[in-house]
């Protein structure tokens, strides 16, 4: 099974900043297979986050096409993209981005509020997701009552609770110590291997990249090297 989940065709992206146009990508082609776990590395400013934003449908290309599961997403409306993200993407952020006033369980429940599931079904899904990340005993805790690693695990539970195919992670261990980072990365690996999640992870940490199946090196908006892991 090597069907393509993503196809990027001649994708260009530029920003206009102080009347100057900064081009990040020019005619980038890329394919991502379903079930892959890709690490993207590269120097700061090379366009890693911009690429992740394009894949996640939170930003749109200046030109070119992005196909997901055979359907174009680059020309969707803002609401169309929001609905697409809700159905297909789980995001993991460097700084966890949990809602500080909500308990772990309430944070994990957020994506389910977009689904029309009833309260008891939502509760069951939240419990399952928290159990998977090993935090079923912390359901009632607020983010500030948890360590960074625990908060990132809550964020992972939030990303998978509605069972999306795709997980996009921007420096998911950038704010964590080595041991905690390894724990998180093992969890992502498990989600990829056991649950078939396609994962694209931006990182500057070569150790983190080792958990992926493949590492792409990005420089000045172009892929310069591809490494396959053992």
């Amino acid at each position: 099974m090597t069907e393509n989940l993503f196809e990027l065709k001649k994708v260009s992206k530029s920003f206009v900043k102080a009347k100057e146009t900064i081009s990040i990508f020019e005619g980038l082609d890329m394919t991502i297979k379903a079930g892959d776990f890709i690490a993207i590395m590269g120097p700061s400013g090379s366009g890693k986050t911009t690429l992740l934003n394009l894949l996640g449908g939170v930003d749109q290309p200046t030109s070119g096409e992005i196909h997901f599961d055979g359907k174009r997403i680059d020309n969707l409306s803002e609401n169309g993209l929001a609905a697409w993200r809700a159905a297909n993407v789980g995001f993991i952020f460097q700084f966890y981005n949990l809602m500080p006033m909500l308990s772990a369980a309430k944070n994990v429940e957020l994506p389910l509020l977009l689904t029309g599931l009833g309260r008891s079904r939502r509760k069951a899904s939240v419990e399952a997701a928290l159990k998977l990340v090993g935090l079923d005993d912390r359901a009632g805790h607020l983010p500030k009552e948890m360590s960074g690693g625990q908060q990132q695990r809550v964020a992972i539970a939030r990303a998978i609770v509605s069972d999306p195919k795709l997980m996009l992670c921007d420096e998911p261990t950038g704010d964590l110590d080595r041991a905690t980072a390894d724990e998180i990365l093992k969890m992502l690996q498990l989600l990829n291997r056991e649950f078939g999640k396609t994962i694209v992870m931006v990182t500057h940490d070569p150790e983190a990249a080792k958990y992926a199946k493949k590492t792409l090196h990005l420089d000045k908006g172009e892929f310069v090297k591809e490494e396959l892991m053992a």
Partner: peptide, 14 residues
């Protein structure tokens, strides 16, 4: 801002 944007990324509407 970050909370609002995070909710939007998750799929919440404007």
């Amino acid at each position: 801002a970050r909370e609002i944007a995070t909710l939007r990324a998750i799929g919440f509407g404007g």
